[in-house]
Design a protein around this nucleic acid. Structure first.
Lengths: 153, 153
DNA sequence: ATCTGTGCAAACGTTTTGCATCCTA
DNA sequence: TAGGATGCAAAACGTTTGCACAGAT
């Protein structure tokens, strides 16, 4: 599977918009890239970037994540635990083609990733029916995980 | 379409759990029932209940919504605008059988409801493959609405 | 009479903002 | 060197919690 140069993509898009390439922006994206499978909070990212670049501020991380999201370089997920999470964007050529969804247990709160790719048809249908151009989706299932099911019954 | 007596359902479930039937609980559910199509924040609900029952507190609304959600009498939606929203539960026999999803425009933030019912197969597949018992789902599509598409190009 | 539920206000944790300074272009 | 970007601290925001009192069973 082809893998794009994510940093190069960032540089290019910043240039297009007349924005500046800073260490902080490069580092935030690079941390997300190196943690492909994880769903990271701003705080998580802040701590990891701070290992290499201790003078970074949390506010900068928030501002950068917003920017990267606007540019479609990162994906956003909300697991209903009070903070937004980020991961490297599916457009960046990460191995997860963003067909993974989440099963959230109502009882114990566990989050189980689940892969499926039945949404492409639906996206095409939406585009035809409404003129809305779909870029991304977020699908969550709520219910009871097998352990909690057994405990309850 | 059959329509259940939602208040009766609440009374019954409270009794089952040994919890008390209070005006506040009845009123919160009834406001949600009367605003079937809307996605209401705790604040919205608080203000409407307060018209009939001014002494209610916002904390009670939050506690009640949590309770109603635990009992599966209301659905929760997160439209990424910083607050959780609620609507009358699809189990209560509301006319929306909860096959309506949301298209969120990245440009202007508009939220467009969209009906589709292609998720039942996927839910069955999940139950078989993982043992996770699905009760509910939340599906959001992010992209560009037709107006913003035309503006950009 | 008991014990859950409530209202109020304070606390909480995440995210945003104002402003002086820094640094990329 | 000019204007966007940053770090810091304070503010803002939705939501939760502690506690004394009220009210349902």
């Amino acid at each position: 599977m082809e893998r794009k140069n994510t940093e190069g993509l960032l540089r290019q898009r910043l240039k297009e918009k007349g924005l500046k390439v800073t260490h902080q922006r490069i580092l935030v994206l690079s941390v997300l890239e190196q943690n492909g499978g994880r769903h990271m909070t701003a705080e998580d990212i802040y701590e990891l970037v701070a290992e290499d670049y201790p003078e970074i501020g949390l506010a900068t991380v928030y501002r950068t994540l917003q920017l990267l999201w606007d540019m479609q370089l990162v994906d956003r997920i909300n697991l209903d635990d009070g903070c937004v999470r980020y991961e490297i964007g599916h457009l960046c050529g990460g191995e997860t083609k963003h067909n993974h969804h989440h099963l959230i247990c109502r009882e114990c709160g566990k989050v189980i990733p689940f892969d499926a790719d039945l949404l492409d048809d639906l996206e095409h249908h939406i585009e035809k029916a409404t003129g809305f151009h779909v870029l991304d989706h977020e699908l969550k299932f709520y219910g009871l995980c097998s352990e909690c099911m057994n405990k309850t019954e």
